[in-house]
Every structure is written in C-alpha cells, then in structure tokens.
Simulated assay, not measured.
Amino acid sequence: MAPVTTPVKAAAGEGLVCALTFDDGPNGKDTAALLDALRERGITAVFAVIGEQIAAPGGADLLRRTVAEGHVLCNHSTSFADMGNWGADAVRADMQANLAIIREALGDSDARVPFWRAPNGNWGVTAGVAVELGMQPLDVTNVIQDWIDQDADLLAERLSAVMTPGELVLVHDGGGDRAGSVAAALRVVDEKLAQGWRFTLPLGAE
C-alpha cells in the first residue's frame, strides 16, 4: 500500500483487535524483557526507534533482535527533539540520517522501515516528507502518559481504559527507566488475551 499523508490510526483485522506500538527505544533491559514476553506470547508489534538509542551500547543488538523476531520498525528520528516547527529540508535530513543508522545497524541497506512517527506527536511538515521517503505516517492517540509516571498499577489501569478495538495503543520502552511501562503492558495484554482479544499490526504494515 502506497503511503499517504493522513496518519494511520487503525489496527488490521476486525473485532477485538489492537496494535501495540512501543516508542523511544531500543533501551537495554526494558526492551529485552519486552521482546522476551512478546515472543512467548506470539505477538508482533511496531517499535518506533531513535537513532541515539540504537547507537548506545547494546542498541544495535536489540534492534537486530527486534527485526529478527518479526517486529516492524518505525522511524522516530535521530533524537528526542521536537520537529514540529522544522523546515522540510531539516526534517528530511534527520529522517534520512535515522534510516541510515537503522540500516547500518541491521547490515541491510534495503531494510524495510514502513512507518514514521513524529516525536511528541508534533507533526509540522513531517508527514509529507515521510511520504516522499516512502514511509507511512503513524499516529497514536491512545496513550498512558508513561513518560510522567512509572507506577505499574496506575499504568495498567490507564492502558486497560484506553485500549480500544480496532485502534493503536502507545507504550514506551525507551526514553528512561520503563520497567513500569513494560510490566503494565504485559499485564494488560494477558488480560485482553484471556478475553479473546488479538494483537495485530497497524494497517499498512504488511
């Protein structure tokens, strides 16, 4: 499916389906624990990755594992900078730089990175530039504010409340200590699986 500037917000499939997206990694033990748990449950997800995180110790190994285990990558910029007021040339340069970081880490100059997500959700001109570079903008409005709190019980309550059939949900595995985020996500995933939910990928991931 050719990318379009309107961001994707829907999960593939019908009924009790949801697509998991994880932001700001890869990030050491938190990403590793998350990957372990997703593999045990046979779930694939989208990982929106940051170039600085890939370049950090162990980041490239985690990225390679993420792809090897069937997860889908999303370009999330080289850093945590807000790009909402950047011009197109600056946006393009950063997107291309992060693609280069990703592909160099993977050892594959053609590695597929089908999605783009704007840092902090501030799109500016980034959606149009992403489409020019062959990436589908990906928007996630179902969030749990886990960049503020890391109380696993609170985050699990929030995640259960915002997880909506047919939509995407966002949890962070990077950008700081995210042990609470990972624990909450896995608790809610197990609850939803027991209720008959399925975890798919966003539309356009195929």
Rank of each mutant, 00 (worst) to 15 (best):
M1Y: 10
A2D: 14
A2M: 11
A2W: 06
P3K: 14
P3I: 14
P7S: 13
K9W: 11
A11D: 08
A11C: 14
G15I: 12
V17L: 04
C18P: 00
L20C: 12
N27A: 15
A33M: 10
L35V: 10
D36L: 13
R39S: 15
E40V: 06
R41C: 04
V46S: 12
F47W: 12
A48Q: 14
V49Q: 07
I50R: 05
G51H: 09
A56K: 11
P57C: 09
P57I: 09
G59M: 05
G59I: 08
D61C: 04
D61M: 05
D61P: 02
L62S: 03
L62W: 06
A68K: 09
G70I: 06
H71P: 02
H71S: 04
H76M: 06
T78M: 08
T78D: 12
A81R: 13
A81V: 12
A81L: 12
N85T: 15
W86Y: 14
G87D: 15
V91Q: 02
M95K: 03
M95N: 02
M95F: 12
L99Q: 14
A100D: 14
I102L: 03
R103E: 03
E104W: 00
G107F: 06
D108P: 02
S109Y: 00
D110W: 00
D110A: 14
A111I: 05
A111E: 10
R112W: 11
W116R: 03
A118C: 07
N120V: 04
G124S: 09
G124K: 07
V125Y: 03
V129W: 07
V131Y: 08
V131E: 01
E132M: 06
E132L: 05
Q136F: 05
P137E: 11
L138I: 08
N142D: 13
V143Q: 13
Q145H: 08
W147E: 01
W147M: 04
I148K: 13
I148N: 03
Q150S: 09
A152N: 01
D153A: 14
L154I: 08
L155A: 07
V162K: 09
M163N: 02
M163E: 03
G166E: 09
L168Y: 06
L168H: 07
L168D: 03
V169C: 12
V171H: 03
H172D: 11
G174W: 10
G174Q: 10
G174A: 11
G176S: 09
A179H: 13
V182N: 02
A183N: 02
A185V: 07
V189L: 11
V189A: 02
A194P: 03
A194F: 08
L201V: 11
L201R: 07
P202A: 08
P202V: 13
L203N: 08
